[in-house]
Every structure is written in structure tokens, then in C-alpha cells.
Computed example of a mutant assay.
Amino acid sequence: MTEDAFVAHRGLLFTVAYEMLGSAADAEDVLQESWLRWADVDRTRVRDPRAYLVRTVTRQALNRLRSLARSRAEYVGEWLPEPLLTSPDVAEDVELAESVSIAMLTVLETLGPTERAVFVLREVFELPYGEIAQAVGKSAAAVRQIARRAREHVAARRPRTRVSPAEQRAVVERFLAALRTGRVRELMEVLAPDVVLVADGGGLAGAAPAPVQGAEPVARLLARPDRVVSAVWLNGSPAGRVELAGRSAAVSLVVENGRITRIHAVANPEKLTRLDEPAELAR
């Protein structure tokens, strides 16, 4: 048993930390802290390196999540997860793609730290309740109750319908084409009447300070003909990248019944540093 166990499971460990934190930068910090602990462990006493490492990363991520609570409460404007460039292959694992989507990560932000950890470990990574109990410092019975509450909480807030990758891609392509024209009417045709746009500028880039609702207000906000629009894969789904006056934004979309119901636009430059190389995500 060598340090290769950490390397071999790095994609999984990063995914666990990222889903718990919604931030790739914080996830990397958690992995560094976990690696330092792993380096000091007597490997001969570790029977299951994968389980041991997941527990370690979970504990470090919980500590980080609790320490971040205040800074996120003081964040300027709307806070959205940090988008990741992913390869189209990630979409082939439908459950993984859904779990790392910006929409899901935004829902997970409404859970408490322990609830979030339990939900991620159980629903995404399918860990036994006993292992999760060890990771979060609760009894298995308590973890079962927490998991049930978290499932109900997430189910009430996640997108109502699941669309096929082909439909998602087709609607996103229509939206990006309309965005390139900058015409209000064409944008409205692909937006649901009650569409909501949430933008994250972090006080460092121009962004709507509060969610914007309604097809016409959203379309008018987006109607700019002088931007460069490209298709990308973000967090396991087709998405867009927008360049305007030297600034960038990553645009993630929720599709239901053939139209876009929610737009997450991240313009904070500190959250756009991982859009050049696909992230390694794994379950």
C-alpha cells in the first residue's frame, strides 16, 4: 500500500470534496490537507484505502464548509458554484452528471453541512450508512434519518423533470444561437414564461444583484449583439461561454419541456479559472 492509493482515487476524492463545497479551489485545498494526513498514516493498518480516504476528505470538507459559512453570507450578490469544464464523457454517467450540475449544487447549498455530506455520500456515491456514520461522526441510525430529510429537501427543489441529453443539447444550441443574434424575440422563444436568471459577479464583474424572472425581462437583459458565444460542456452538461468587452461568463441552463426554466451565469473571474482543461470527475 503506497501513496498510489491516493493518486488512484484522486478523481473520486476531488468529486466528493467539490460536491460538498461547490468550489474547485476549496476542494483542492481539502485534497491537499487530506494528502498530508494520508502521508502520516501507517498504511499497514488501513484495510480499505478508498473508504479511509473518502472519510478523511469528508471530514476535511465538513470543516471547510463550516468555516466558509460566514464568508458566503457576506458574499456580494448571488453566490453560485464554481463551474468546471468537463468532457462529454461525463454526461454518459447520468447520475454523476446530474449530481455535479450547477443546478444540483445550488440546491445542495440549501442543506446544512452534515445533511449535505450525508446526501452526497449516500445518494451519489452509494456508501453504506455505517461508513457515512464514521465520516460525519453520527450513529448509523441518525445518518438514516438525516439522509431521508435531505432526500426530501432536495426532491422538493431540484428540476421537476429529467430531460434526455439529446433534448438538453438541442435546447441549449437554440438558446446559444439566439444569444448570438442578440434579438429579444428569438431569445423569448426558447425561454419558459417563468424563467429565472441568477448571476454571480461576486462584486468583481457586472451582474444582476438579484434573480431576474420572466421571459421578457431575462431576454432584454441578455439581448446584446456584440458578444462572442461558444458552446462548452460544463459540469457534465451542454452549456455556453460568453465573451463581452474582455470579460467572460459561464452560462449553465436548466431545461424542462423543451424550454429553459433557469439560467445560472457565473461572471466572477475568480470562479472562471478552470475552463481551459477538463476536470477529472469520478464516482
Rank of each mutant, 00 (worst) to 15 (best):
E189F: 02
Q168N: 15
R183N: 12
V190Q: 04
V163L: 09
R174S: 12
V196M: 14
V184M: 00
V190L: 07
T161H: 06
A199H: 04
L179K: 05
E189R: 14
R169I: 09
M188H: 02
V171L: 08
V184C: 00
A166S: 12
R174Q: 14
A155L: 11
A155S: 15
R185Y: 15
S164Y: 11
E186I: 04
T181S: 09
D194S: 10
L176G: 01
R169W: 12
E173D: 11
R183V: 13
V163A: 13
V190K: 03
E167C: 03
R174N: 11
R183D: 13
P159D: 10
P165W: 07
P159L: 07
A177D: 12
P159C: 10
R160E: 08
V184G: 00
A170C: 09
P193I: 13
L197W: 05
P165I: 03
L197G: 01
R183I: 10
E167P: 02
R174Y: 07
R160A: 09
P165N: 11
R183P: 04
L197M: 12
A192I: 05
L187G: 09
L191Y: 01
R160N: 01
R162D: 03
R157V: 04
V195G: 02
R180H: 09
Q168V: 10
R160G: 08
L187P: 05
A156S: 13
E173R: 10
V172N: 04
R158S: 02
F175Y: 15
L176R: 01
V171Y: 08
M188F: 01
P193W: 12
Q168A: 15
V163E: 10
R158K: 06
L176M: 02
A170T: 10
L176Q: 00
A170S: 13
T161L: 14
A155N: 15
V198Q: 11
V163D: 08
A199F: 09
R162V: 09
M188R: 08
A178L: 04
R160M: 00
R158E: 04
R160P: 00
S164E: 15
R162F: 07
L187W: 11
F175M: 14
A166H: 06
L191F: 01
E189W: 07
E189S: 07
A177P: 07
A166Y: 04
A192D: 13
E186W: 07
R183Q: 14
V171R: 08
A199T: 08
R158Y: 00
L179R: 05
S164T: 15
V198L: 13
R158V: 04
R185A: 15
V196L: 13
G182A: 08
R174C: 09
L191R: 01
P165M: 12
E173T: 06
P159T: 08
Q168R: 15
T161K: 10
A199K: 05
R169Q: 15
A166I: 11
R157Y: 04
A166D: 14
R185H: 13
L197K: 01
V190N: 03
D194V: 02
